[in-house]
Design a binder for these strands. Structure first.
Lengths: 226, 226
DNA sequence: GCAAAGATAATTTGATCACAAACTATTGCT
DNA sequence: AGCAATAGTTTGTGATCAAATTATCTTTGC
């Protein structure tokens, strides 16, 4: 019989699901360097599980564009490439403006308070130079807002985009720290409070442009046009 | 050593990949009824392979929204729901108009000939009442056009949408035949020839509206609001 | 000295098995 | 009859192993 801890809350949920969540978080928030090769057995050993659940989790992450499968049957974190960043930038603008717009229609007063709260946590992360904290807060802020659009399908597509630039973001901010980061959510919050669609669009586009733009510049600086 | 035919082109490509492609095609072009439950062993027996490759393929298809995983750990073709259709409709409009617009910028003369050719095949399918032929032609037409946008990421997202309404489309057209279907690609081709962005947008929106609208009406008629 | 060829190691892939969870059908009780 | 408990079946999950494939190292021939 396999012993299962009664303390941990992850009883009943399959191992491959746990592995999936762990790996996805790690990719999303920059726990892997872009281009890093991973192996099933390596991940299995590292996570203390057998190879089987890792296989399923990795297949899933490949399908979600979080991992890259090469012709050699090898798996890696997608490598850096400026064209990809531009594509993601363009797609984010298109999809997230739409999501925010739809969310605004359903937004309650208390939702704004929640977002305010998340934004405060982001401020703390920025002050303390906590890059991962900033990334987590940023993710929470955006997807809490988008969740109010009730467009599950679009949200899934956008999450698909976010995992793709997570590694890059951590890479460039890991170098420069949080100094170059500024909180772009203040004007978004103002727009939400005054229920101003146009202002919200502008705020979002600015936020996306800041994030993607900085990644883009850092990459072209390093000369990684691939 | 296991003998592998040298005639078939699928030498070297893993079984789980072949299973994935087969299942995806079948879902995309309506080979399964919406809501149909599938089992790993069932599919394995049907395809004449062991359960392991099916597991990987199914896991992948779930991640791509082609299959649905329930809390019971059971897998099925996603069931019909009018809200989902509306969401897909909205998302398609947003993404496919963008893709077509980008494609128009890179479109060569010979591409138009290819599209013309595909359109002719669609006409044949419509005349002979070949629903699956129409669906395949329709898919080819759209994604050949989109491929010229060179926006691989967006294309992947849109493919994600198409697998989700494949089963529905076959369901409603399977009932009424190709009689209610008309070729909406003629005006799109005209717009492409004259390189008219606005006309192309209109043609695409009309095409999408026709497809999604008919599914929507059929569903509300049957009263499947879920 | 170096490139091609061969041997070795690491990794993916596919099959099989044991087990647990979920579903189905049957039985037994009020 | 209607419902609950139960036994039997089906199915997903995870582990293990063998075969096939790819990468890495070593040797050989020039």
């Amino acid at each position: 019989m396999t012993f299962k801890s009664a303390v941990l809350p992850d009883v009943g949920i399959p191992v491959h699901e746990q592995v999936y969540r762990q790996l996805r978080e790690r990719i999303l928030f920059g726990g892997f360097l872009p281009g890093k090769a991973v192996t099933l057995r390596g991940l299995a050993d590292e996570l203390g599980v057998s190879a089987m659940p890792v296989r399923e989790a990795v297949r899933r992450l490949i399908a979600e564009n979080a991992l890259e499968l090469h012709g050699n049957r090898r798996v890696s974190i997608p490598d850096v490439c400026i064209d990809i960043i531009d594509e993601i930038w363009s797609a984010r603008r298109l999809l997230e403006v739409e999501l925010a717009s739809k969310a605004l229609d359903n937004l309650e007063e208390e939702d704004i308070l929640v977002l305010q709260d998340i934004d405060d946590q982001i401020d703390v992360a920025l002050e303390t130079g906590d890059v991962e904290g900033y990334m987590r807060g940023n993710y929470e802020f955006h997807f809490y807002l988008y969740s109010k659009s009730h467009s599950e399908i679009l949200i899934k597509l956008v999450k698909n985009l976010w995992v793709q630039f997570g590694p890059f973001m951590r890479l460039v901010y890991g170098r420069s720290g949080t100094a170059n980061l500024e909180d772009q959510h203040k004007q978004a919050l103002e727009a939400l409070k005054s229920r101003d669609q146009n202002a919200l669009n502008d705020a979002l586009e600015a936020d996306i442009a800041q994030g993607m733009g900085f990644i883009r510049e850092s990459l072209s600086l390093v000369g990684k046009a691939r």
